[in-house]
Design a protein around this nucleic acid. Structure first.
Lengths: 252, 252
DNA sequence: GGACCCCAAACTGCATGCAATTGGAGCGCG
DNA sequence: CGCGCTCCAATTGCATGCAGTTTGGGGTCC
């Protein structure tokens, strides 16, 4: 029996949604790197809509954590800190364990075929760019989430997976995807067998190893951003904004 | 040692954010029941802003799953199906287990005092309305999430907790809160002792019992909405929208 | 040469206006 | 009495315009 009946997907065909999808994809394919500026005018012009719409789209992406929005400032692609990246993976592990727990032994043959077809596509894409490989790997997990037919689970898994993609741009070494593909196959097989405990374990270790390969080391200096490094030192500042560095006459 | 260093909170003081907070609170206190209409004009007028801003706020709340937005239709407070409610609780259990796992044995005395103070407040509010009790109980969980200092975890726990509040309005019998308060105290105590396994179990059963008390029964007919009941029968319709019921000449 | 200041360009925050869509009241018909 | 039709008020979708804020570059003074 299929895991739940099918249901309608969210995200209609608003102009806003179209822009969101486009930007999301650009971000996870790393065409837009973390920190890239996203001025409303430019987006509006590029997508043939008014600034109002572009702005709204940015708001949605900010709600998903892919974009950072600071008042009166140009929006930028989010640059999660190393710790946030680790947190995202931790959450993702729990959510995806839940996914495979719900799915174990409940997939139709058609669904299993669909999953296998997807992994085949991942395989074929191995020659291509990293960006495409990463996107396909991510979409495998989202495909799984869809099969639970729990819209909430789909949303959260998608979001957190996208965020994890983001962190790959930041902290990953050029990575090898073959093992990930094999792990995907193992997961499908365990799902088909209905071995709940095993598939949860497989998913856990799969994501953990992806995280460990991606988030190379605590390397505190790779925080990438001066502001992150200085953040702890600015705690006593009352205002929300970091104090305007006053010329730093570095007398010791 | 405190669990992580402090960090700045998100959600600035935009007009949009103000409206979001107000609506969120109105929703979780059940002043706005599921299905309640939220016309942009009315909101704008009520909050003294333009429709643009109200619209943007609705977009944010829709992204959080508290509001349903259908093209060209008045926005309404979300009415999750029974299954969605159950899914939300399942996700919530996993997320909050993660919260207490990270927190066990890592809370400062000040943090423990803060938690106790909150539960005291819950206790004092027992005489008041259900709405306030529910809000306080929810805020206890969000307070816990905050102490992890993981912004992502805070966001997801908050969202899913709010969604669970929503389902209480729909499917809950007038419920008794005392036991929940005791369970909160037990969780604090186990956190202080640092008993990771135990606190995860406590949280699990706490949320599970809340869910079971709230989601009274599968009662398939309480789906509340004709569309939900008919949804499975509309699967073969190609378009996204349900076919316009053509007068249903109910010949057998 | 470098620190400081000031101003214009760029950009965001928000309100308003107009066209398109909806849904419901009213009305006619079987 | 119920069903279907038409039409209009209510409402959304979106673009544009204006005001306020930030940015960054050139000129000035040390």
């Amino acid at each position: 029996m299929a895991a739940r009946a099918s249901s309608k997907t969210s995200e209609s065909s608003d102009k806003v949604s179209v822009i969101c999808r486009a930007l999301r994809r650009a971000i996870i394919e790393q065409a837009l790197e973390p920190g890239a500026k996203l001025p409303e005018d430019a987006l509006g012009e590029r997508f043939g809509v008014s600034r109002t719409i572009a702005r709204h789209a940015l708001g949605q992406l900010a709600a998903e954590g892919l974009v950072e929005l600071r008042r009166n400032r140009i929006a930028v692609v989010a640059t999660p800190s190393w710790q946030e990246a680790r947190d995202a993976f931790d959450i993702r592990i729990e959510l995806e364990r839940l996914v495979v727990r719900q799915l174990a032994g409940k997939l139709t043959k058609a669904q299993i075929a669909e999953l296998n077809a997807h992994v085949d596509a991942e395989d074929r894409a191995r020659g291509g760019t990293d960006a495409v490989s990463i996107r396909l790997a991510t979409e495998f997990h989202i495909l799984l989430a869809h099969m639970t037919n729990s819209p909430i689970l789909v949303r959260y898994v998608s979001e957190v997976a996208y965020r994890c993609c983001l962190t790959l741009s930041l902290y990953s070494r050029p990575h090898s995807t073959e093992c990930a593909i094999n792990e995907h196959r193992a997961i499908i097989s365990a799902l088909a067998k209905g071995d709940e405990a095993k598939v949860m374990d497989l998913m856990h270790h799969h994501l953990d190893s992806v995280a460990n390969r991606a988030l190379v080391a605590p390397t505190p200096q790779r925080g990438r951003d001066l502001l992150d490094i200085l953040a702890p030192y600015a705690d006593e500042v009352t205002s929300n904004r970091v104090v305007k560095l006053p010329k730093v006459a570095r007398r010791g």
